[in-house]
Amino acid sequence: MHTQHHDLIQTIQRNCHIADARHAGDYTLCVYLLKMREFYRWEKGIRLSDVVISDDVGEWLTQREAVWDALDEQDYAPLSLNGSGEHDPFANETINAALNSAGLVYSAGYGRRCRPLFFLAELEQVIEQDDYTLLVAGRELARDVEAPPAMNQGKHVFIRRESLRRMLWEKVDEWRWSGLDNPMGRALAHYDFDADVEAALDAMAAAEIQTVIAHEIGEVKAGQALGDAEWQTMLFALPPSHADIMLRAVRDLLADCLHTLPELLARGNAASIHFYFGNLSAMRKKLAPQLVAAYQHWHETGDAEKIAAYAEWGREHWATVGRKALAVFQTKGGAALAEIEAMVSCG
């Protein structure tokens, strides 16, 4: 399958290796080993529910690091597409214009700390939202060690079903160690992982990809409310800091109030509502204790009115907080960190 795209897949995977070679040192040792174990599983086609043999991973890791050593000084290679010559590997729109009709989707962009991210996958679905295009990717044919479930690149949003499925498995595995009665445990209780792990993961991924899509549509709307280009310029300019984490949480909360939460309530899928709150970051919990309390009220009574009310209130509130933070940054630049932190904390 995809034999006609063999050379393209190999070139993209080589670019992935170059990015990995340059940025593997960004992780702590523990995170690095976990990510490489997961990457080995993907590369070898091992099911998430199957055991990975540590000795095999160790031997493969040694070989992979040798490949990286040979590539870390190399340039990213252009992509050769039939009939249209060679293209810069970051020319997403041009490359996808050629590949989407063949049932493929490609993405090249930058993640945290300006880390290049590449992937090629089978294209499952295209969703148009305002001036944005959401592309849902299925089976991945080339990828980096870093594989976020969703990415926003200009006017295109990429949603990766395989990456989401792996993330869900990590959540399942993590929760099994604790077994706590918490939102994540309540979400997982809706799926029969004991009977068939793979089937349960498929069912959960099918539900949660709708939540990811809802959040990404919310991100589009949040960008429109805040001024996406100016907001991204600010985030790229800020050093790793508490303010950076807070601002990302502000935008996430705005996106969720604009679209994710209303969509979750409209769908009425209890498992997805539990999962949303189980996946809520520590910073979002800190900034939005009323939302956490609204969830607890819903869990105890089945009444979602407080969640709906928070979403309605939060649309204006978090947009205002975000705009004020952006205005301070545009005036003071990097010297505004402490002021931004204080402003966001006060809400």
Rank of each mutant, 00 (worst) to 15 (best):
M1V: 04
M1I: 02
H2I: 06
H5F: 14
L8T: 05
C16K: 09
C16S: 11
H17L: 03
A19Y: 14
A21H: 15
R22I: 00
L29Y: 07
L33W: 06
M36V: 02
R37G: 15
Y40T: 04
Y40D: 08
R41K: 10
W42F: 14
E43I: 11
K44Q: 13
D50N: 08
D50K: 09
I53L: 07
E59A: 15
A70W: 09
D72T: 06
Q74P: 03
Q74Y: 06
D75K: 08
A77L: 15
S80Q: 09
N82I: 11
N82L: 14
G85L: 01
A91N: 15
N92Q: 13
E93D: 15
A98K: 14
A102W: 02
A102Y: 04
Y110S: 11
G111D: 13
R112H: 13
R113V: 09
R115H: 12
F119S: 14
F119A: 11
L120R: 05
E122H: 14
E128W: 01
D130W: 07
D131R: 09
D131H: 12
L134M: 10
L135V: 10
L135F: 03
V136P: 03
G138C: 05
R139Q: 11
E140D: 06
L141V: 04
A142G: 08
E146P: 06
P149F: 05
P149M: 05
P149Q: 05
A150V: 08
A150T: 11
N152M: 06
N152P: 02
N152V: 06
Q153D: 10
G154I: 02
H156S: 15
V157R: 13
I159M: 13
R160P: 09
R166P: 04
R166S: 09
L168V: 07
W169D: 03
W169N: 07
R176F: 09
G179P: 12
G179E: 02
H190S: 14
D196E: 08
D196Y: 05
V197N: 02
E198Y: 07
E198I: 01
A200T: 02
L201N: 07
D202A: 07
D202I: 03
A203F: 08
I209F: 04
T211A: 07
V212T: 12
V212F: 02
I213M: 07
E219R: 06
G223S: 12
A225R: 13
L226Q: 04
A229E: 15
E230D: 15
Q232T: 10
L235N: 13
L235H: 13
P239H: 13
P239I: 07
P240F: 06
M246K: 09
V250N: 05
D256K: 00
C257K: 01
G268C: 06
G268V: 03
A270Y: 00
A271Q: 08
S272R: 11
I273P: 05
S281W: 00
A282Q: 07
R284H: 01
K285H: 01
K286Y: 09
K286S: 14
L287V: 02
L287E: 04
L287Y: 06
L291M: 13
V292K: 00
V292W: 00
Q296N: 06
Q296H: 11
H299V: 03
A304M: 04
E312K: 10
W313Q: 14
A319M: 12
T320Y: 12
T320A: 15
T320W: 11
A325V: 02
A327W: 03
V328F: 00
T331L: 05
T331H: 05
A336D: 01
A336Q: 03
E339K: 04
C346K: 10
G347C: 09
